[in-house]
Every structure is written in structure tokens, then in C-alpha cells.
Design a protein around this nucleic acid. Sequence first.
DNA 1: TAAATAGATGAGTAGAATTCATTATTCATT
DNA 2: AATGAATAATGAATTCTACTCATCTATTTA
Lengths: 304, 304
Amino acid sequence: MAKLERIHLAIMHEIERQGSLTAAAKRLSLTQSALSHAIGKLESEIGVELWRREGRNLQPTQAGEFLLSVAARLLPQLAHAEDRIRQFASGERGKLRIGMECHPCYQWLLKVVAPYLDLWPNVDVDVLQKFQFGGIGALFGREIDMLVTPDPLFKPGLRFNPVFDYEPVLVVGPEHPLRDADFVLAHQLAEETLITYPVAIERLDIYSQFLMPAGIAPRQHKLIETTDIMLLMVAHGRGVAALPRWLVDEHSSRFQVHALRLGQEGVAKQIFLGIREADATIEYMRAFIEMAADQKKVPEPQTP
Amino acid sequence: MAKLERIHLAIMHEIERQGSLTAAAKRLSLTQSALSHAIGKLESEIGVELWRREGRNLQPTQAGEFLLSVAARLLPQLAHAEDRIRQFASGERGKLRIGMECHPCYQWLLKVVAPYLDLWPNVDVDVLQKFQFGGIGALFGREIDMLVTPDPLFKPGLRFNPVFDYEPVLVVGPEHPLRDADFVLAHQLAEETLITYPVAIERLDIYSQFLMPAGIAPRQHKLIETTDIMLLMVAHGRGVAALPRWLVDEHSSRFQVHALRLGQEGVAKQIFLGIREADATIEYMRAFIEMAADQKKVPEPQTP
DNA sequence: TAAATAGATGAGTAGAATTCATTATTCATT
DNA sequence: AATGAATAATGAATTCTACTCATCTATTTA
């Protein structure tokens, strides 16, 4: 019957703090009468006096004292909860689950995430590798909130923002006959062993943008998970690989490898961040995309 | 602006539990429309969606999920607080501060308090010796809630209940010439050393009821705090004491002492429990007085 | 395709919260 | 005492808002 409401706790608390109904009423933007009625009603409903009327001032009874302790505990929690909700509302708090469809992007992403975490302390970032979620459908299915991919799929409800230009290049070892060439033509790969990440062929730039159009297939195709191992194999003449140029540059100090353009003109590609259209207005999402775009220039070797 | 109310938490919680507005509404004795309006209003006020409408069922958003966690934490606390308050109301919970004005009553009181604590687990009992509070005024001043005293003071606002009849007797040692007498007369104490508790003379039965009326004073008056020491002194012939008969009986196995009536008829006294009239209806107070009254017969030696 | 079931919406209403106006106490000052 | 200032209590009037009702739309099931 008697429901304890927030206002009751607030009134109790403020009377205690201010020492009088009148003062408490002022602070709560109510009238003295309102408080008197409210307390009176509560008291009659629960059947206990909460305040002992001693002359013109009020002393809490045992029950009143108990309620005051409840108020002291719960009111801050409610206030805090409101604060949190407000953070969700303003888009400064939330969870950002990022799905990666782009194998070598991980290191690039780290460069974006690191400063982002400092600027958005209330956003929890989680990064999922592609085998941990269901591709582009995961965006719709809300398994992830952001998709990092070189292959945007312009569907209604999704929005893809380009954030990073890169050039896939062919990587060859120091003994390779093409090591000093500027570029490579498709037919020159016909007798090569091509090393790639283990993803579907149509998702590999070198096939879709270069080999397939020319109707060429390499002699052999090896699958390697790790970039480091891949470059190691290439450096030791066990095959050639196709990787973003910036990635090759980053490792050039550790591996003796050479980068060649794919075709005379080279190939231009972009990395996209895909999000649900509904999330486009969320502050922390906008901020992430913006920071990712600012990072786009190929990170240069740090040594001066 | 947006005040988070208990009802909001309750609605959120119930929607989660029931899985639908309609079911939740039923459980809350409200209509589906009411919940829809309530959630809608809250959402628009705080500026965040709390539930994602997926077809005909609802999934909590991040903010919604957070609010659900708040609800799960706070709702039980509120319910528990109401429970507590209800206990205060029904008089099954409270604090009972007992002031003792009667020196030797302590052991008798323990016999009452011990079983009382078992029966009233939610009542905190505290016992204050007389020097720890301001006598009868402490009842008015709410330093204590109950006064154990042989001297009731029938003032408006207070109520005294007799709970224990006792007979003050004179205690003498095994060598004392009166050891085998049935009673003692006032003038027989004129040359004695009288040992009493250290309280004002007018508060000592032996003076007010026995010596003063006869105009007699003992040769010497010694003050001792502890009943045990007092009886030890008496047993070794260092004086005589006046104590309740039941107390002497209780110690008779350990001390060689004899009890004599004060005067031919003896003296009849009572212990009273004084409370504020305003507290007379409180259950746990009534129960205490009742238990105290049931304890009134002099406890007999337990050995069969 | 129809039927059933869910939530959303707008208007109207009942009931509760609040104010207003007033009375009754208490307390300090003279 | 007497006065005045300040406080809480009280009852009636008013304002508000939470709720219901009736209806509509969308989704799911048969």
C-alpha cells in the first residue's frame, strides 16, 4: 500500500539537512505545506511517526532515523544513475565493438584506438577478429557496432566511411629477379608462389584487382596467418606476397624485402569503417571515425 | 529535469522479466498503454532510447541495460527498506534503552532480557546504569525508553508498571547475635555498621521504610558498589546490609549469611518499569513489561 | 489472407500532488 | 505578560500528470 518514493527520501533528507520544513521546502522548490502534507501522508500510510514535533523543530524518530539512512544511501545512487544515463544520452558513454575484416589493419587500428581510449574514458572498446563475428551481417545483428573492411557494401541502414587510402603492392625477397623493378605485370606472377592471408580469394585485392582481370593464376597459393611469418617467407625466397605498402614500409627495417606496384599504375584501395545509420549521430562513434580519418596518412618511420 | 522514479525502475525491470509490455503491465496492475506512455516519456526526457523495438518485442539498448542493472540493485533495497519501516510500525523493531535505578536489579533484569532477546530479534536492548543517565528526567529527555526503579513517580506522560514484588531484609553474618532471629527492630541497628550501595539515603528502603520512621541511625554507614563484596563483608562480620530477600537467597549457597525481616511484619516493596505514555502501545515495549511481570516470582535455586 | 497479438498514439479523466489561505504553536524580546 | 516573528498543521481549491480508453499500425502465426 505505502510505496516509498524518491520524493519521500528527498524530503526526509532535506528536512534533516536544513532542520526545518520551511527551509527544506525552499531547497526543493516546494512549499512548506507540500512537505507537511507529504510527510503526513507517508506517516499515516506506513503507520509510524517519522518526526517528533518538539516545539518548533523536528527530531527524527527511530523509524525516521532509519529512513534517513536509507535516503543517504539511495539518493546518491539515483543521482549517479541519472548521471550515467545522461552520459549515454550525450554519447560520451557506451560500448564500441569493432569487427575487423581487414587482416593487416590491426596495427593501424591500434594506432587509432590508443589515443581514442584516452579521449573517451567512458567508452569500452572491444575489437573482434573476423572469425569471431558474422561479417557484415553482424552489423545488422548488433554483434558489432563498427566494421573495418576494404569492401564496403552500400546497403540501406548501413553507412561506410573511407578512412584510410592504401596501395596493395607485391612484396619480393632480396634474391628475386624483380627486386629492382618499379612494378610487376600480372603475367609475371604466373610461375610464382603467392602467399596470402587465409581469406576467400575474391576478398584478396591482388586477385580481384590484378590477377583475375588478366586471367592469370599463380603457380601455387600458400596461406599464412601472420604478417611477420609471411614477410619472413618472402625474404627467404619462398614466395611473393601482396600487402599494403605502409605495412611493408613498417617492416622494411626488419626484413629484406622490396615492394613493387601492381601494374604500371598501381592499385588504389581504401579502408572503410561501416556503422549502422541509426548510430551515426552518437558522439563517440563520430569521434572514432574522425580520429581514424585523421590517422589516414601512412605512418612514417619514427626514426629521425 | 528528468527525474528517475521508482516506478520507472519497476517498469523497466518488469518488462525485462516478462518480455513484453502487455505482460509487464498485467503484473504491475497497469495497462499496456500506461507502460508505453511511461517509457516513452522517460525516453524523451532523458534523450535516449531504452528499448529497441524489434518487430513486436523489445531489446534493451545500452542505456536500457544500464538502467536494468540499476533497477536490479535499487528495487530490492527499497523493498527491504519498506519492510524495515513496517517492522518499526508494527513495533517488532526498535531500540529499547533501559535505565536502571535499582542497584541489585541487574541480575533480575538479565533473566528477563535473555529470553526477550530471543523472542524479539529485531529489538536492540541497551542497559544503562544509573550514573549513565539523568534519572527520571532521562525518560522525558529520551535518553532512555524504560526506567527500572523501586520509586515510581506518577507524572503525566509517564506510566509505571509494577513487575516484581520483593522484601528488603537485613543480612547478617554467621557470628551475629541476631543470626537466628526472625526479624529485627530498628533500635537493634543503632550500634551496627550498615553497608549499602552508594545512593542517596532517601532512596534506600532500609532508611526510608525502617530507620527514619523510628528515628534511628546506625553507628556507621559504609558504601559498597558490588553485591558480592557486600555479602563477603557481612559474612565476615564487618557489618550488616539490607538487600532484597531473593538476592540473598540466590547467594546463600556461596556466603554464610542470614536474612531477617525488617520489623515484625517485614517491608513490602515493588520494582516498577516506567515508560513514556506515548510508547505504551509499542508492541515490543508491552512485551517486555509482560515478560518482566511473568518473571516476578522469586527465582528458585535451580538445583533439584 | 485473415486472425491474433504486440506496441504506439491521442484525447479525456480521475486522482494525487501542490498551492493558497489560515490557524495554532513556539520562541525571543521587550 | 505582551508583542511579534517564525514555524508547522490544516482544509479547501487548484493544477497537473499518470492512467485509461479507444483506436491505429505493425508483426507474427495459422
